[in-house]
Design a binder for these strands. Structure first.
Lengths: 206, 206
DNA sequence: AGATTGAACGGATTGTTGATTATTCAGAAA
DNA sequence: TTTCTGAATAATCAACAATCCGTTCAATCT
């Protein structure tokens, strides 16, 4: 079991090097196998297919991101609104930078999104859990008033779709995207109706 | 001049028939020219290129849609919130049906969006004007409280992006999209903060 | 037995060739 | 002159061949 895991890791590491250096498409299973001093066929004892190796790499990275989001969601000394802001901005910035400077990451994201549509849903569901937790706390402190928190989390995700895979849907620069996300967040928090005070429109984070 | 316009119309009509019957790609300039009893070269006295004929057709149709939106934006006996609802739903439904039942329209939309990125921006700007007008009225009646109406219109468009070209970004059915748009709208209008009453969450329209 | 190999299969990809077609423009027609 | 033509051009596309590569599995090794 531990043995098996070691081999799995070895494969993942070899693939990681190849993928990030030559790209997913230009890396062959035979090459990865050779890097691990094994035959191509043997890879299939550890992964169902090539795409699963890529998914494994992506997930490893994503888990770190998720952890960072969880931290932000419960940061002390921040209002619920600020924490929501931090969450959404972290998401935007991470994706933007990842896809911006690294065409290999872009390629892998595209392939996985295309061949495994459910993967994106799984990511959204993970982040929804964090949002719901944030809402729970916020409600207790009377910061937000929310009927159905799960649904509301979905709606927040709908409304911020544009900022989740920024360069797939627009060619805007990061500063412009940030300004726009800030505007959308303000609207989501305060609404269009007259009523309560709107606390400051934007803050710096990180 | 009128003469020229007549010929232009004739070309557009011939192209419209061809495009909707055989598709944009499978229609040749020679065929359109033949339908108009003229040589292919002569088409270029009236249009800079094939794509411009398609654009002309698309715009003709779009102008009708815009007119419908303008009507909805000033409908009497409806609250601002209801009119905003009608506007966004009309947009969603039109696009959905158009792309759903007519693969030719989908093809043309794709080609134009790809070759003429500015075209989509022009459409958004048109619709923003309508939104701003709606906001102006709403503010006078005290229904909405809005700082910068142009910016707010942009933010509404950002937040409802997912519903503007529905089948490009998700495989959701119309009812699901409608439920989601309703949820997003509710959030945009009322905000997350506790405060004023939320008038009914959803209504039927047309 | 279980673990590993590597040749073989077939679906996808690439490169090449030939045809199609959007666009131009020199000249014919009006 | 202005209006139009249609052959010439260059870019794109479709079809086919050849190759490549992910995946499988019968045979080999431990």
């Amino acid at each position: 079991m531990t043995e098996k895991n070691t081999v799995r890791c070895q494969i993942v590491e070899a693939a990681k090097k190849r993928f990030s250096h030559f790209g997913y498409a230009k890396t062959t299973m035979a090459e990865v196998a050779a890097d691990c001093s094994m035959s191509p066929g043997n890879l299939y004892r550890f992964f169902p297919g090539k795409l699963d190796i890529a998914e494994s790499i992506a997930t490893e990275d994503y888990e770190k991101h998720l952890e960072a989001l969880r931290k932000l969601a419960v940061a002390p000394n921040r209002t619920a609104r600020e924490r929501l802001h931090d969450l959404l901005f972290e998401e935007l910035r991470r994706t933007y930078h990842k896809l911006e400077k690294d065409p290999r990451a872009y390629e892998m994201a595209t392939v996985i999104a295309h061949e495994r549509p459910q993967y994106a849903n799984w990511m959204l569901a993970n982040e929804r859990k964090i949002l719901v937790q944030l809402f729970d706390e916020a409600e207790q402190r009377g910061e937000f008033a929310i009927d159905d928190k799960e649904i509301t989390a979905e709606m927040i995700q709908s409304a911020t779709m544009k900022f989740r895979y920024p360069q797939l849907w627009s060619k805007l620069t990061l500063p412009k995207l940030e300004r726009e996300l800030d505007g959308v967040l303000k609207l989501l928090v305060n609404g269009l109706c007259p009523g309560q005070t709107s606390s400051a429109g934007s803050e710096a984070a990180a």
